[in-house]
Structures are given as C-alpha cells and as structure tokens.
Design a binder for these strands. Structure first.
Length: 462
RNA sequence: UCCCGGGUAGCUCAGCCGGCAGAGCAGGUGGCUGUUAACCACCCUGUCGGGGGUUCGAAUCCCUCCCCGGGAGCCA
C-alpha cells in the first residue's frame, strides 16, 4: 500500500479507506484496553491520531513507539468519536523504522524554550513551532517566484564570490585559497592577493545589486533570490551573517515605480500566506501572540503610509517621546526613531523616502534639490528596515562625482560606469531580507529561529 | 563591540545577607475501557558553567574566563 501524507489524509481522506502512513511519534497515551499515538510527518501542522486497540498485533510494538520514533502505521481511516480531531486511523499494524530512546531523546511532550531548541538545531524542525516556521518559509519562497514570474521578471543568478568591495553594505568575508600559514606579502607587508586563486582579493557577496543592474539594463525586469553574506560583528535578534536576499531591478523605472512594486510585492506575500499557510500562522498566533491572521489581512489590504525623511524628522521633533539619540535633519534614523514611527505614530509599515545623500549609498540617484537622494526604506513594527531601495544614479557625471566624494575606488568599477556610458536609462530596485520577512510574518522574535542553520558571530554549529 | 540580565537534575526554575541539593515536568515501574501537553501511585535523577581566591565551611561572597538571552551600535 502506498503511503499517504497526513495533510492529504486529513483534507481528502474517506472514512473506511485503508491507509498507510509514515511519520514521527509526537506523544503516546496508553490505558488498559486502548492506546493513542499522535503522529506527525511534517506535511501539515496537524497530527494524525492513531488508535491501537489492545487486541491488535500492533500493540506489541507500542513500547518502542516513544516520542521521536519513526514508524509506519497501516489501518482504516475512521471518523473520530472524540473531540479534538475529525479523523483517526484504527491501526492494524505498526512497523518501527527507528525508535528513540526516551531517556536521551531531548524533545519531550512538553513545550521547550526557543533558546533550548537552538541548541538542538537538527531536531527542532520536529517541533510544531519549527514545522510551522519552515512551511511558512517555503510558502513565502514560492510566492516570491510566483509574484515576479507572473509579472515577467527574469530570475537572474548573481555571483556568490565577487571582487567588488565597494557596495558599502557592511563588512565582507574574504574568500581565499592562500595558505594561511604562509601568506605571500607585498613590499609594504600587506598580503599579496595577486598570488591568490583569482589574482585579486575576493569576497563573499554582500549584495547582487550591482550585477542585477547590468542584467536589468539588458533584460528589462529582473530579480535575484539567493544567499548573501555580511561579516560585521553584529549580535542582535535581527541579524544573520548568512541570509537570503531578494533584489528586483527594473529598467525604465523611477522611485515611484519601485515603491509601487515593493508595496504590491509585500501585500502579495501576505495574501499568499493567508491562502496557503493559515493553519501554521494560527498555531504561531496561539502560542507566541506576535503574529495574527487579522493583522496579515490588514497588511494585505491597506496601503502603506508614505512619508519623506524630512517629514519623518518633523514628526519625531514634535513628539514628546524621550529619545536616547538626537533627532536632527541629516542624521540617520535610529532604531528607536523607526520604532516610534511604525509602532506609535502609524501603527503599521511606513515607507520613508528621500534621505539626505550623505547617509545613503553612492549609487542612489541625486534628487533635483541636490541634497537628498531617491531612496526608500520600508519600515515595519518591531523589526525596522525590511526593504531598502532606490532609483539608481544613471547620469555618468553625477555618479562619478558621488564616487569621488565617497572615496570609492574606480578600479573594478569601470564595468559599472559603462552602464552609464552606453545606453544608460533610469532604473530602480530594492533589496528585501528574506529572513526578516519570514520573521515579520511568523512573529518570531529572533531571526535565528526562521532559518534552519543560522550563521552569526560564534555560531555555526549546525 | 558596548550596556544590562542569566548559567543549579534531561527541560523549566526555586534556593543566593555562607551551615545536609530542592520543586514541577520529563523518564522508569505499576494501575486505569476513548485519550488530547491524559490521569493516579511509587521510584530514579546533580562537575550548582570552567578556573582561581576568601573562609572552619561556598550553589551562595570576591576575581577571572566561557556560554546564553535582552537591548544598543552595525546592517537587510
């Protein structure tokens, strides 16, 4: 008999049907004449209830069906006479693939703290919580492709290893094949990377944006969706050293088009989660109360608040809130300022635009006022910046001037300037940190809980 | 990197102005005719994060290192 997945049994099973099901034991409850097993196979939030009468031959194998054991059960699907579940399987036979010693198996029937589960990263996906998170993550990943593909965006694969070190997006990991025990040195005692594998100092990418730009300037609308690496010694619940980033880039587009895309994108993802991940969100809502179906509905429907950086500063200045950091035009918004805007003033996502050029990257397009750039950040409650984007500077003279001012070395960047020399055009894009999105949607308070194997300073165990 | 708070049984935590190492849960055994984080009874469980110091005596006080969490900076 072919095995069925629990999700399918619960949604389209017929009573009286013979079924075979494989999964891991969550709990076992026994009394004299009857025993129950809650079985999970990862396909859905819900467990399948197995009923094992004492007279069934399967009951002889019950003592090996401890929490965590992998088993196959065959039997008849029945309507459950008791509260709590619609269906159950009356089991005639159980096969044990692998038992789990109840003395040493770390997962108990009871709840565990997220901190403890982080120490057993290889087993935590077996919990309700992490099952829900990783299913939500999958739905979102699929929805990202669905959104862009349905709009004719081309998925491009920008490099993981790069020689560009000038994106100003954080510290870089070096990629090298040099013998670290005897590094070749130049005249000044610095490391001679011409002898390294690529003949240049190479890094793990911090962003695919610059490469996405040249692909947009030929294919029109493109997006990247891949891993990104940041080496800064950052220790917060919102930071990972290895994370996945989504970066659409559009030719013949300005900041308005960019914001519209970002907003529609964000709302599409919320809609998809409600459509496909409602039971997982409902579970997380019940246990952690940091996310809710109602909230996601609002997000999916309500337009975002738009506010310029200058207006945001005014809003903060007139606030009676005591801020730790100064509020002044020209200074970057601190976490506390962002949180005040999203949590207190607007109670939802806010798009802040037109930041002073001094606090933003060199490639962002200079506005006619010549003191701000066509940048936009989408801030969300609790997490802060989830999307950062801009219209890119397409004018060669303005761009080179800004590079000189920001002391960006022109070496390695000529190809980027070529895009402004030959067939330059307005273009725009943004970057979305995928884990921050998953974090926001699931309501998980620590970003390390929304990726199977979190990478962070001093953290690489699994 | 900085500022706080923690580290005691498998898990969650109490004990901390020095004087016998504790509870709940988990686990084991037995009981129970339909359970839902089942229930009832009994039993088992320790490098009190590591190292050093003070003291007759340290889980408790002091120093130091490590690890974890929260916040900040940095960043998406």
């Amino acid at each position: 008999m072919q095995r069925l997945r629990i999700k399918n049994i619960l949604s389209e099973g017929n009573t009286g049907q013979a079924v075979a099901v494989c999964g891991w034991v969550r709990t076992r409850r026994e009394s004299k004449g009857i025993a129950f097993i809650a079985l999970s196979d990862g396909s859905t939030q819900e467990n399948l209830q197995l009923v094992i009468p004492a007279e069934s031959s399967a009951s002889q194998r019950l003592h090996n069906c401890n929490t965590g054991a992998a088993i196959k059960a065959t039997g008849i699907l029945k309507e459950s006479p008791a509260q709590g579940q619609k269906f159950e399987v009356e089991v005639s036979d159980i096969e044990i693939f692998g038992d789990a010693d109840p003395v040493s198996y770390p997962l108990q029937k009871k709840g565990h703290t997220l901190e403890f589960l982080r120490e057993i990263g290889h087993l935590r996906p077996r919990t309700n919580t992490f099952g829900a998170i990783f299913r939500v993550r999958n739905i979102l990943a699929e929805a990202v492709h669905e959104f862009f593909q349905s709009r004719g965006f081309i998925w491009v694969h920008t490099p993981i290893i790069t020689a560009s070190d000038c994106e100003g997006a954080g510290d870089l990991f070096t990629v090298t094949a040099l013998d670290l025990q005897k590094l070749p040195k130049g005249d000044k005692g610095d490391i001679d990377f011409t002898q390294d594998f690529f003949g240049k100092h190479a890094y793990l990418t911090v962003s695919g944006q610059l490469e996405a730009e040249f692909l947009a300037m030929s294919l029109g609308n493109v997006y990247t969706f891949g891993p990104t690496f940041r080496a800064e010694n950052s220790n917060t619940s919102r930071h990972l050293s290895e994370f996945w980033m989504i970066e659409p880039e559009m030719a013949f587009a300005d900041l308005k088009d960019d914001m519209q895309l970002a907003e529609e994108f964000f709302r599409f993802l919320c809609m998809k989660i409600l459509e496909k991940g409602a039971s997982d969100i409902a579970f997380l809502e019940k246990f952690y109360r940091n996310t809710s179906i109602a909230e996601l509905k609002t997000l999916a429907e309500k337009p975002f608040v738009h506010i310029s950086y200058t207006e945001a500063i005014k809003e903060l200045e007139k606030s009676k809130e005591k801020f730790e950091f100064p509020v002044k035009w020209g200074l970057d918004l601190q976490s506390e300022h962002e949180r005040y805007l999203t949590d207190k003033v607007f109670k939802g996502p806010v798009i802040v635009t037109d930041y002073p050029k001094e606090i933003k990257a060199f490639y962002m397009r200079l506005n006619p006022d010549e003191i701000t750039v066509a940048a936009m950040d989408i801030l969300v409650p609790k997490i802060g910046e989830i999307i950062g984007g801009s219209q890119r500077e397409e004018r060669l003279e303005v761009l080179t001037e800004r590079m000189r001012h920001a002391e960006i070395p022109f070496e390695n960047m000529e190809w980027y300037l070529d895009l402004r020399r030959y067939g330059s055009a307005p273009h725009a894009g943004f970057g979305l940190g995928f884990e921050r999105l998953v974090q926001y949607i699931t309501g998980m308070s620590n970003i390390r809980d929304v990726i199977p194997c979190p990478r962070a300073p001093q953290t690489i165990k699994f």
